[in-house]
Design a protein around this nucleic acid. Structure first.
Length: 568
RNA sequence: CGGGGCGUAGCGCAGCUUGGUCAGCGCGCCUGCCUUGGGCGCAGGAGGUCGCCGGUUCGAAUCCGGCCGCCCCGACCA
């Protein structure tokens, strides 16, 4: 491709509102343009990068035995209603109607569609298999942000495995995880594998592949010494229980007029938040439960649900809270609570003389103690992990990270195959739902992640694996016949040698060409300039080495300089 | 959805507090000359219903109300 013809409008300046490096550079270098919030056009250069990423993903998926197919983006809403996800996703699901008024949605993910398709399987003999597609997803995010990091329309590779049982799923899952490791390594991105929760997809044993960067929007905790990593909701907390040192003191009633929140109460009473115990009322599969965590901690709903073995967990409605606590919302406490069974966080075992809600309007209780004042039904790890918590593996303190979520894998089990009746007949003659896994990887997001990780003051520095072109020939003096001839000859020869080459032949000044070449970030640069008269050119690696060589050696030198994925 | 910010020429911005002489700057673009290894130089030129609607006023980019759009933080989320 010649830059004279290439549609890649570069920008000298960009609005100060655009903050992320990846967002700024992809816009400035002419890879993407924004159509509306969270909606981006991929320009020719951007599309080439995404295609490279897709091809790596495709090769690794195929190598792992997965089969590519292509599903509709438009789904009958009815299908999402069958699994309950139409309601669960709510407004995040883009909905529309056809001319007859039949409701549809734009697929935010494809579990329903693929499961219905897979329900054609009749026998265990046809299992297992894994299907994948690379497709546009639509999610009506309440707040798109960060350029291409979080958008409303994006492309994703989503794979789904179907097995006859859980051991089969475990094996399919590991195969996909291995493929993901290979993909990350080929692209060249550093990453952490993080234990996570299922969220809107569901399932268990889910893991995220995170690019560690402050620009990211995911938060996780990681042990730098052993590599254990998890999101706060699922990070296992080692409870360091110290034997109580205080003597139990007499229970006291304290008036706390209109003080409901932890902040209000601690400020009013002049005590630190950790002296309080929060009482959170939930409904789990229809029963009411109260979860107790220290005042300065956050409850993990994932952990509570796990501890309860509940299928569905929701915060109780205000009316329920008022009923069981006999008080307005904000004054619930464990002492004298009605109906609800009480679960307490492990960390509270050593606590004495704490403050709780009083189950009465404008009342809290001081010097509350376990056993004497109320009974706990179960103890469990219920709180979110925090930076500084001790690693459950090796005991070192965990560190807080931010990251860009590149990929996410889930074990789904039968949560989709049951409602959609994707059954098969097993060897024992029994009809069983297929056991599923799903494996997502955002390809457009990955492009942004690569830029976020590989750039300098001058622009992008593409890894070879995903560069839009491998080399650019920069013809400085386009009017000089001899120079032009050399550039044209190199252009042909390098392509014959298998390089993907861009020829910078615009009638621009040298400075413009250099600036744009650095901004666009193509790894190989061949400068045809003042030394061309002596039959020499400069061969450079963007962000790395530069050599002046005879024209005839340009190809070999280029190959050498580009032999690594990243500049040395 | 809560909090904050922004919307003026193709792009980036100033002007708004204190209404009138306020349609301005830089880049880009067009013409000519010059220059040709890091976003040259000089001269001339084109280009804007100041996001939209309404209000206040003799007069609104500027003040007021409503709406729309975009960015950031939070909630939420893959």
């Amino acid at each position: 491709m010649r830059t004279r013809e290439l549609f890649a409008p570069t920008l000298r300046q960009i609005s100060g509102e655009v903050e992320l490096a990846s967002h700024r550079l992809l816009l400035r270098a002419g890879f993407v343009r924004q159509l509306a919030a969270g909606m981006y056009s991929l320009l020719p250069l951007g599309l080439r990068v995404v295609r490279k990423i897709e091809n790596i993903v495709r090769e690794e998926m195929d190598a792992a035995g997965a089969q590519e197919l292509f599903l509709p983006a438009l789904h009958p809403l009815e299908l999402w209603e069958k699994t309950g996800r139409a309601q669960y996703w709510g407004d995040e699901l883009m909905k529309l109607k056809d001319r007859t008024g039949r409701p549809f949605c734009l697929g935010g993910t494809h579990e329903e569609v693929i499961t219905q398709l897979a329900s054609e399987v009749k026998s265990y003999r046809e299992l297992p298999f894994t299907l994948y597609q690379i497709q546009t997803k639509f999610r009506d995010d309440p707040r798109p942000r960060g350029g291409l990091i979080r958008v409303r329309e994006f492309t994703m590779k989503d794979a789904y495995s179907f097995d006859r049982d859980v051991p089969g799923l475990d094996s399919s899952y590991e195969t996909m995880v291995e493929a993901y490791h290979k993909i990350m390594q080929r692209v060249g991105l550093p990453y952490h594998v993080v234990d996570a929760s299922g969220g809107g997809i569901g399932g268990w044993d889910t893991r995220e592949f995170e690019l560690p960067t402050e620009a990211g929007e995911s938060h996780y905790l990681r042990c730098d010494s052993c590599g254990y990593a998890a999101t706060p909701e699922v990070a296992q907390c080692k409870a360091e229980i110290e034997p109580p040192t205080e003597e139990e003191q007499a229970l006291e009633r304290v008036d706390t007029p209109d003080r409901r929140t932890i902040e209000e109460v601690t400020e009013f009473l002049g005590v630190p938040p950790k002296k309080l115990v929060k009482t959170l009322i939930y409904e789990a599969d229809g029963r009411v439960v109260a979860a107790l965590v220290r005042g300065d901690r956050d409850l993990s709903e994932d952990k509570l649900q796990l501890a309860l073995g509940a299928k569905k967990l929701e915060m109780a409605e205000a009316a329920t809270i008022e009923r069981v606590s006999s008080a307005p919302v904000g004054f619930a406490g464990p002492v004298g609570l009605k109906e609800a069974e009480i679960l307490a966080d492990n960390e509270l075992r050593g606590e004495r003389n704490f403050i709780t809600g009083g189950n009465e309007a404008d009342l809290h209780l001081r010097n509350v103690n376990f056993g004497r004042d109320f009974e706990v039904k179960d103890w469990a790890d219920l709180r979110n992990g925090e930076a500084g918590d001790l690693c459950p593996g090796c005991g070192e303190p965990l560190r807080a990270y931010r990251g860009i979520e590149l990929a996410h894998v889930f074990k789904l089990g039968t949560i989709y195959s049951e409602p959609l009746e994707a059954h098969f007949l097993d060897e024992d003659g029994e009809r069983k739902p297929m056991v599923m896994g799903c494996y997502g990887l955002g390809t457009t997001r990955m492009m942004a992640a690569v830029v976020e990780r590989f750039n300098d003051d001058a622009g992008i520095i593409w890894p070879m694996a995903v560069a839009p072109y491998e080399a650019v020939i920069i013809l400085l003096n386009h009017d000089d016949e001899e120079h032009r001839a050399i550039a044209e000859q190199l252009y042909v020869e390098l392509q014959q040698d298998g390089f993907e080459v861009l020829l910078e032949d615009r009638p621009e000044r040298a400075g413009v060409k250099f600036k744009d070449a650095d901004l666009i970030g193509i790894p190989g640069q061949i400068v045809v300039g003042r030394l061309a008269g002596e039959g020499k050119v400069e061969v450079r690696r963007r962000g790395g080495e530069s050599r002046t060589v005879p024209v005839g050696e340009a190809g070999g030198t280029l190959r050498e300089l580009l032999s690594s994925n990243l500049p040395a």
